[in-house]
Simulated assay, not measured.
Amino acid sequence: MDRLWAPWRGVYVVNKSGTECIFCEKLNAGVEKDFENYVLYRGDNVFALLNIYPYNNGHLMVVPNRHVGEIEELKLEEMQELFTVIQLMVRVQRSALSPDGFNVGMNLGKVAGAGIPGHLHIHIVPRWGGDTNFMPVLADVRVIPEGLEATYAKLKQALERIV
């Protein structure tokens, strides 16, 4: 088995303080740190942020503000706002990035692939025709064509135009 040593991912998987999950830390850091934390949107019950380890350019997540890991534990107002913000973020991505389609979904539980199983989150991954190529197959490498800062700026501008 090949191993990839990636110690920089440790802060993503295990936070610095050990007291909060990464989503709670980003939410509680405050609005003044939104750019630094790539938080695009803050609502009453949910927030949206870029994934710092994206599957594709513009990959973002919509997350309940409340630390909740099970879909059955969501309150009605959280579920309603989750899907309202998912719809909004798809509109924002369409406007800013012009993707051909989207993957929208969540991994519930560690065995299902949830990297942070204690705090439910929904992924929105923009897709383009031809964005899957030989690199992941032959080299197990994803090519992300744009930096997070540039993508964040495009999405934030589109959000401001739409809202």
Rank of each mutant, 00 (worst) to 15 (best):
L159S: 08
Y53D: 09
E81C: 03
V104M: 04
D2N: 14
N51E: 00
M79V: 10
E36Y: 08
L60D: 05
D100G: 07
W128C: 07
S98P: 00
N57I: 15
D2M: 11
Q87R: 14
L60S: 08
N57R: 15
G105D: 02
M79W: 13
M79G: 13
D100F: 03
F47I: 04
V111A: 14
P99Y: 08
C24W: 02
P117T: 04
L97P: 00
G30L: 04
R142V: 08
V63N: 04
E81M: 07
M79R: 15
K156C: 02
R91D: 12
Y53N: 10
G118I: 01
E78K: 06
K75W: 00
N57Q: 15
T132S: 05
G58N: 10
M61L: 14
A6C: 11
G115C: 06
L159D: 08
N37E: 12
L88V: 03
G58L: 02
L49Q: 10
V111M: 10
G129E: 14
A150T: 15
M135K: 11
I162T: 06
Y152K: 08
N107T: 02
M1L: 11
L120E: 03
G101C: 07
K16Q: 11
P7H: 09
F134A: 15
G130Y: 05
E20W: 00
A29Q: 03
I52G: 00
H121Q: 07
E32T: 13
G30V: 05
M89C: 03
F134D: 02
Q93K: 11
L4H: 11
G10A: 13
Y55N: 08
M79K: 14
H121G: 02
Y152Q: 05
L88Y: 07
G69C: 05
D100A: 06
H119W: 04
R161A: 13
M106W: 01
G130L: 09
T84W: 02
L120S: 01
I124V: 13
F102H: 08
L97S: 07
L159C: 08
A48F: 05
T84H: 05
N65C: 12
F35Q: 11
L88Q: 06
G43P: 07
M1V: 12
G58H: 05
C21M: 04
G69K: 09
E25K: 13
I86M: 11
V13F: 11
F83E: 04
E81T: 03
L82W: 06
T19C: 07
D44E: 14
I22T: 02
A158K: 08
Y53S: 10
V85I: 09
D34K: 01
L120N: 05
E25Q: 13
V143H: 15
R161I: 10
A114R: 03
R94Q: 14
Y12W: 02
V63C: 03
D140P: 00
E25S: 13
